[in-house]
Amino acid sequence: MTVTTSLEIITSDLLDGVRHGFFTRRGGASSGIFKGLNCGTGSSDQTSMVDTNRARVADAMGVPILQLVTVHQTHSARAVAVEDAQPLPRPEADAIVTATPGTAIAILTADCQPVLFADRKAGVIGAAHAGWRGAVDGVLDSTLEAMEELGARRENTHAVIGPSISQRAYEVGPEFFETFFDEDRENSMFFINGEGDRFLFDLPAYGLHRLRRAGVGQAEWTRHCTYSDPERFFSYRRSVHQGEADYGRLISAIRL
Rank of each mutant, 00 (worst) to 15 (best):
M1Q: 07
T2W: 10
V3H: 10
I9S: 05
S12E: 05
L14G: 06
H20S: 03
H20F: 10
G21L: 09
F23Y: 12
R25S: 02
I33M: 14
N38Y: 01
C39F: 06
G40V: 08
G40E: 06
Q46A: 15
S48D: 15
V50K: 07
N53Q: 05
N53S: 06
R54V: 11
A60T: 06
A60R: 05
V63R: 12
L68P: 09
Q73S: 13
T74R: 13
A77K: 12
R78W: 03
V80S: 10
E83T: 13
I96R: 07
T98L: 05
P101H: 09
T103D: 01
T109F: 08
T109L: 09
T109A: 06
Q113R: 07
Q113C: 08
F117H: 05
R133L: 10
G134Q: 01
D137R: 09
V139D: 09
T143S: 09
R154C: 11
R154M: 13
E155D: 15
E155H: 13
H158D: 02
G162H: 02
G162Y: 05
S164R: 07
I165Q: 04
Q167M: 15
A169V: 01
A169R: 04
V172G: 06
V172C: 14
G173R: 13
P174G: 13
E175Q: 07
T179S: 05
T179H: 03
E183S: 14
D184V: 03
R185C: 00
N187C: 08
S188C: 13
F190T: 03
I192F: 06
E195P: 12
E195Q: 15
G196T: 04
F199G: 03
P204V: 03
G207L: 06
L211F: 04
R213I: 02
R213Q: 14
A214Q: 10
Q218H: 11
A219C: 11
Y227H: 14
P230K: 11
R232S: 12
F233I: 04
S235M: 03
S235R: 02
R237V: 10
R237E: 04
V240I: 15
E244H: 11
I251H: 01
S252F: 05
A253V: 08
